[in-house]
């Protein structure tokens, strides 16, 4: 009887907290089993049954509270990369306004997106969405004071930094754009797991198979957010607000 209750409590606790085993009910379970083996030669009295029920109840409550606390620590924010967010390492790219590096990102909240100008379908849609995101976040103090949007071209052979600037300023004159050599690009894309590879389109031209997620980088260069396809302005702006609040609360 006691074993069954203990097992039940442990199972419930485990399923509530997910992957990580929690120390409290586990130790409690061991103590309970030890107690049970000492008492095994005596017939369980009703007061014994009651105390087992009480212990089981306490264990269940502890499990529930632990689960609630853990949930509060890592809330269900869409796009949040937590715990262990990737970290941007040192990089340097060319833009129409000079070099853009990890220093450009320090102290700012950056929405970062990879693409190329010979991408007439997805890239303009994403930049138009980011323009709407910026408009929706006009009232958000974090974005208004410290927000920026950076478009990085993974096609340095066709995209010059001047042409890139004209391309993004069509959407919003505040947007930044940069590109670099293959090695310079990899310094940024590597830690993010961003893939970019040339694919011939059969007419002597090529397209670039690339990661189309939008990343949110915090002032300490932690990549706290990632928004996959399809890109939706309402989701991304709500995600920016929630993730930036979360990031400030978790320095």
């Amino acid at each position: 009887m006691a074993r069954t209750s203990t097992f039940y409590v442990y199972t419930v606790q485990q399923s509530l907290t997910g992957r990580r085993k929690d120390a409290v009910p586990h130790a409690l379970g061991r103590r309970l089993s030890a107690y049970n083996s000492i008492m095994s030669d005596t017939a369980p009295s009703s007061s014994f049954k009651a105390s087992i029920a009480l212990i089981a109840f306490v264990a269940l409550s502890v499990g529930l509270i632990t689960a609630v606390l853990r949930t509060a620590d890592a809330p269900a924010i869409q796009g949040l990369l937590w715990p262990d967010p990737p970290q941007i390492s040192a990089f340097s790219l060319a833009s129409d306004k000079g070099r853009i590096s990890d220093d450009t990102l320090k102290g700012r909240w950056t929405l970062l997106f990879f693409g190329f100008t010979h991408c007439p379908d997805v890239c303009p849609s994403t930049l138009a969405t980011l323009k709407q995101v910026a408009a929706r976040l006009a009232e958000n103090k974090t974005f208004a004071d410290h927000g920026q949007v950076l478009f990085v071209s993974v096609d340095p052979a066709r995209d010059t930094s001047t042409a890139l600037a004209e391309y993004v300023h069509y959407f919003d004159p505040h947007f930044l754009a940069a590109t670099g050599t293959e090695a310079e690009l990899n310094a940024l894309t590597g830690p993010l797991g961003v893939i970019h590879a040339r694919v011939p389109t059969g007419d002597g031209e090529y397209s670039i198979d690339h990661t189309a997620s939008i990343f949110l980088v915090d002032p300490q260069l932690r990549v706290l957010g990632k928004f996959g396809l399809p890109h939706d302005a309402a989701t991304i702006s709500a995600g920016f607000s929630a993730i930036s609040d979360f990031g400030r609360a978790h320095p």
Binding site: D121, G202, S207, D209, A212, L229
Partner: peptide, 15 residues
């Protein structure tokens, strides 16, 4: 040309 935008996980490609 006629292109299809193909999505594989969070990657896109034109075919």
């Amino acid at each position: 040309m006629l292109h299809a935008t193909k999505r594989v996980d969070d990657r896109v490609q034109m075919l």
